[in-house]
Simulated scan of single mutants.
Amino acid sequence: MTVLVLRALGLGDALTGVAALRGVRRAWPGHRVVLAAPRPLGQWLADHGIVDAVLPAQGLTRLPWPWAGPGGAQDAPGCLAVNLHGRGPESHRVLQATRPDALLAFDNTDAGHIGPDWDENEHEVLRWCRLVRSVGGHCEPEDLRLGPLDPPGGRGQESTGAQQGGRGAVLVHPGAAAEARRWPAARWARVVHALAAQGHDVVLTGSEAERGLCARVRLEADAGDAVRDASGRLGLPALADLVSTARLLVSGDTGVAHLATAYGTPSVTLFGPTPPALWGPMIDLPRHLVIWHGDPDAPPRDPNAGRLDPALAQVPVDEVVAACESALTQPPATGNGTTTPSGSDRPSSRHAAPSPAPSAPG
Results as ranks from 00 to 15, higher is better:
Pro266Phe: 09
Val256Asp: 00
Ala277Glu: 13
Gly280Ala: 12
Pro273Gly: 05
Tyr263Gly: 06
Val321Trp: 02
Gly264Ile: 15
Pro310Ile: 08
Met282Val: 13
His288Val: 13
Pro316Tyr: 00
Val268Gln: 09
Arg287Met: 13
Gly280Val: 05
Ile283Gln: 08
Leu278Thr: 03
Leu270Asn: 05
Val268Phe: 03
Pro316Thr: 02
Gly294Ile: 01
Asp302Trp: 06
Asp309Gln: 11
Thr269Gly: 05
Met282Arg: 15
Thr269His: 01
Gln314Glu: 15
Arg287His: 11
His258Ile: 04
Val320Cys: 10
Pro303Arg: 10
Glu319Lys: 03
Ala311Ile: 08
His288Pro: 13
Ile283Ala: 11
Gly294Phe: 00
Ala322Cys: 04
Trp292Met: 04
Val315Lys: 01
Thr265Cys: 13
Gly294Ala: 05
Leu278Ile: 08
Asp295Ile: 09
His293Tyr: 14
Arg307Asn: 09
Leu285Trp: 10
Pro275Cys: 06
Pro275Ser: 12
Tyr263Asn: 07
Asn304Ser: 11
Asn304Asp: 14
Val290Trp: 01
Val321Asn: 04
Thr269Trp: 00
Ala298Asn: 07
Val256Phe: 04
Gly306Lys: 01
Gly272Ser: 10
Ala322Gln: 12
Val268Cys: 08
Phe271Ile: 10
Leu259Glu: 14
Arg301Cys: 03
Arg287Pro: 04
His288Lys: 08
Pro273Gln: 08
Asn304Gly: 10
Val256Leu: 08
Ile291His: 03
Val290Met: 15
Thr265Tyr: 06
Pro276Asn: 15
Phe271Trp: 03
Val268Gly: 03
Ala260Gln: 08
Val315Ile: 15
Gln314His: 03
Leu285Asn: 07
Gln314Thr: 14
Thr274Gly: 08
Pro310Gly: 08
Arg287Ile: 14
Gly264Gln: 13
Thr269Ser: 04
Trp279Ile: 09
Asp253Val: 04
Thr265Val: 06
Ala298His: 07
Asp318Ser: 12
Pro275Leu: 06
Ala313Ile: 01
Asp253Thr: 03
Val317Ala: 05
Leu289Ile: 11
Thr274Gln: 10
Arg307Gln: 15
Leu270Gly: 12
Pro281Asp: 11
Glu319Trp: 02
Ala305Ile: 02
Thr254Leu: 06
Pro296His: 14
Ala298Gly: 09
Ile283Gly: 06
